[in-house]
């Protein structure tokens, strides 16, 4: 394993890919490997990019990669599709629009589907970030295909979030209402040549007025036309400036610490859950409780309380 760690630190593509699979498969090697890599983490800048399907995220991302490469930054992309059913298969087609970077050794793109990961797909993504970080990528970008609950969870693993909106999808207002505005740092109005783009920008700026504190710089709202490669430089400039602000103001540190805190909660709870499931055959027990409630009209809360106590007692005795 020391070997694998060393290969990853050297930036060996195959080893990085393998390590990600180890994370994805939750292989026994996962935990020691991540611990070995951990001291080498923390250098990368982590961006999240999200927006409704059809907003042009992948195309935009493709342009951002190109621009970052011009500055010699090594870029890793995690394209996450959390919508696939847990047990079924998945088609991961998001990298398609970034395929022209396939031959660039400074770009690594990895597609991930949800697989019923222990700890959710966010947990797995978090670990994949560590692999890329240790491997020396300067910029790690998490891309999600939509703006649902689990997407927000995944994208929130980033230091900074780019939210892509587009006029004419009919869902922009909904997005504003759904509270997704809360998570965005940089707002991108893509397809600016479309009707309604300016109006959308005004609306976004209006909503942001209520969000911004007076001391912070306002969240940038940038208009782009990704397919025409317009506005990309502005996005990069705004993102870098904002990142600088996050760093200088101590917010970056705060966010990272909050993430670590969340990670610990997640891991501890997941492990407890695992123990309970493994040792107490929870599935079967729950089945019996359901039966008691349905067939014998027992009271759910009282019932659970009783069983919970017995489980906790057993744990204590172990």
């Amino acid at each position: 394993m020391k070997d694998l760690t060393q290969q990853i630190l050297n930036g060996d593509i195959r080893s990085i890919a393998r390590a990600i699979s180890i994370v994805e498969n939750n292989a026994p090697l996962k935990e020691p490997l991540l611990d070995e890599l951990y001291p080498f983490c923390g250098k990368a800048m982590i961006w999240g990019i999200t927006g409704a399907p059809g907003a042009g995220k992948s195309t935009l991302l493709d342009r951002i990669i190109a621009a970052e490469r011009e500055q010699q930054r090594r870029v890793a992309v995690i394209a996450v599709d959390p919508t696939s059913p847990f047990t079924g298969g998945a088609i991961l087609g998001d990298r398609l629009r970034m395929q022209r970077h396939a031959l660039d050794s400074g770009v690594f793109i990895r597609s991930m589907a949800s697989r019923g990961y222990l700890g959710g797909i966010a947990g797995a993504t978090r670990d994949v970030i560590k692999v890329f970080d240790a491997a020396g990528y300067d910029l790690i970008i998490i891309e999600t295909i939509g703006v649902g609950q689990s997407e927000v969870e995944v994208v929130s693993l980033a230091d900074m979030i780019l939210l892509v909106l587009v006029p004419g999808l009919g869902d922009e207002i909904q997005a504003l209402k759904a509270g997704i505005m809360e998570i965005g740092d940089i707002f991108i109005i893509n397809k600016k040549d479309r009707e309604g783009a300016v109006k959308l920008k005004t609306e976004v700026e209006y909503v942001l007025r209520f969000k911004n504190e007076s001391s912070a710089p306002p969240n940038p709202v940038i208009m782009t036309a990704a397919t025409l490669n317009e506005g990309i430089a502005e996005v990069i400039a705004a993102a870098e400036q904002y990142f600088q602000y996050l760093t200088d103001s101590g917010q970056l540190e705060q966010r990272r610490r909050q993430r670590l805190r969340q990670e610990f909660y997640d891991i501890v709870l997941t492990k407890i859950q695992q123990v309970v499931e493994n040792h107490y055959n929870l599935t079967q027990k729950v089945e019996r409780l359901v039966e008691l409630v349905v067939e014998h009209h027992e009271k759910p809360y009282a019932l659970i309380e009783k069983h919970l106590n017995s489980i906790l007692k057993e744990i204590e005795q172990r």
């Binding site: 399907p53 195309t59 493709d62 088609i91 087609g93 398609l96 629009r97 025409l228 490669n229």
Partner: peptide, 10 residues
């Protein structure tokens, strides 16, 4: 002119 990039939804 630039080049077109495939856009498919699978």
């Amino acid at each position: 002119f630039g080049e077109y990039q495939e856009s498919i939804v699978l």
